[in-house]
Computed example of a mutant assay.
Amino acid sequence: MTTTSTEQRGRPELDVAGAAPVRHPLRLLATVGVVVLAAMLGHMLVTNRNFQWDVVASWFTAETIMRGLGMTLMLTAIAMVIGVGLGILIAVARMSGNPLLSAVASGYIWLFRAIPELVQLLFWFNLAALLPRLSVGIPFGPEFASWNTNSLITPLMAAILGLGLLEAAYMAEIVRGGLLSVDHGQVEAAKALGMGSARSLRRIVLPQAMRFIVPPTGSQVIRMVKGTSLVSVIALADLLYSVQVVYNRTFETIPLLIVACGWYLILNSILFVVQGAIERYYSRGSVGGSRPSLRELFRSRRPRNTPGSAIGEGQP
């Protein structure tokens, strides 16, 4: 006690009564800048007549636009179903002990992820130039049935093939990452209980991997909604193509593009909310399940006061 009192008398005491909060001038400057930019944007939206908000309102729920919106939603749903189903099979094949299956799955993922999405859509749309007829039969033997490629690969079918097969490549990597996140001890425990590989995958591995698979799958759905706009180049009447047809006739380009942007914003905003709810559902029960803010992240990494710090030195 004597030594501690002597050390305290030799050091200045901290005056915490007159302590002032730390000032953040850059934070204040950034806030002012954002407010000014927001005010400028709002002023432009209100005063610039070239936006033609009356035209936007008249076309926003028009029948042509609604049909295009329905096509966009249908393409998104079909492509995601194909992508998720085929992606799971490709992920399992890539992780298979069979080297041939693993090589084929790896080649599929490499091929479809390396070629741009627009190029793939154009390739499927022009498949008739490569294969005038498509047939089903015994390899190198007789054919059971055949079809004209032009009549079979319609713009809708080309869009489904292009979007769905590409999505399967991305989903395969997402599923594989989720499966690899499961502790290998869980698989060993399933084997010890007498479960086969297929049953342990279905009962043990996949349910635990869903926490890592579902959130990025939500991001893929959002990406797919936007990616469907590419099918306008093959004359499929999605939302963007429907808007283009109207403004090519009326020459009201900006208002009709605002209509398309508005619907894409509405759809993706809904999907953002759904994705957040799914992430919270699958993160419940996990350590650190809630996502920290940037301030909380930096606070968690700030070193604590130690006996050698300024505050600790002034305490007995």
Rank of each mutant, 00 (worst) to 15 (best):
Q52V: 05
Q8C: 08
A128N: 09
P132E: 02
S290A: 15
S96Y: 03
N48P: 08
Y264H: 04
E313C: 15
P155I: 05
P142R: 12
M171N: 04
M74W: 14
I160R: 04
L26G: 13
R113G: 03
A158P: 02
T149Q: 01
R133G: 10
V81N: 11
V84T: 13
M210L: 15
I174S: 03
M195K: 07
P116Y: 04
L45T: 00
R295I: 15
A93L: 09
S146M: 06
L236V: 07
L29I: 13
V81F: 10
S242L: 01
A159M: 00
L122C: 07
G85Q: 09
V225E: 01
V104L: 10
V225T: 03
I78S: 03
L86W: 14
L37Q: 07
L256H: 03
F140C: 08
V274L: 12
V16S: 13
K226I: 11
I234V: 04
R223W: 15
L161W: 00
L152F: 08
A17I: 12
S151M: 13
S293H: 05
P21A: 10
E252D: 13
R133I: 11
L127N: 02
L69A: 13
A158C: 02
L271M: 04
G141P: 01
R223H: 13
N48M: 05
R295M: 15
G285W: 00
R49N: 10
P215Y: 04
G194N: 00
N305Y: 14
I266T: 02
E188R: 06
L86H: 12
F125I: 03
Y247F: 09
R67W: 12
A77E: 08
G83W: 05
Q52S: 08
S102Y: 03
A260K: 01
H184K: 15
D54Q: 04
L127M: 07
R133L: 10
T253W: 01
S5Y: 11
R67N: 12
A168P: 05
T72D: 06
T2G: 09
M157S: 13
I109S: 06
G87K: 06
Q186G: 07
V16A: 14
N268C: 13
P316N: 15
A190F: 06
S5W: 11
P139T: 00
D15N: 07
L256K: 03
E313F: 14
A145L: 10
S232H: 04
G162I: 09
Q315M: 15
P303W: 01
V136G: 08
A79P: 00
G276P: 01
M40Y: 14
V245K: 12
R199Y: 15
A57V: 08
G227W: 09
M157L: 08
E313P: 11
A105L: 03
E313W: 15
R94S: 02
D54E: 10
S232A: 08
L201T: 07
I204S: 09
M95A: 14
P139M: 00
N248G: 10
D238R: 02
I115A: 07
V81H: 05
M74P: 09
I213C: 02
G70F: 01
V233S: 03
R203V: 12
A114D: 04
L297S: 14
A145S: 12
L257V: 04
A62P: 10
D238K: 00
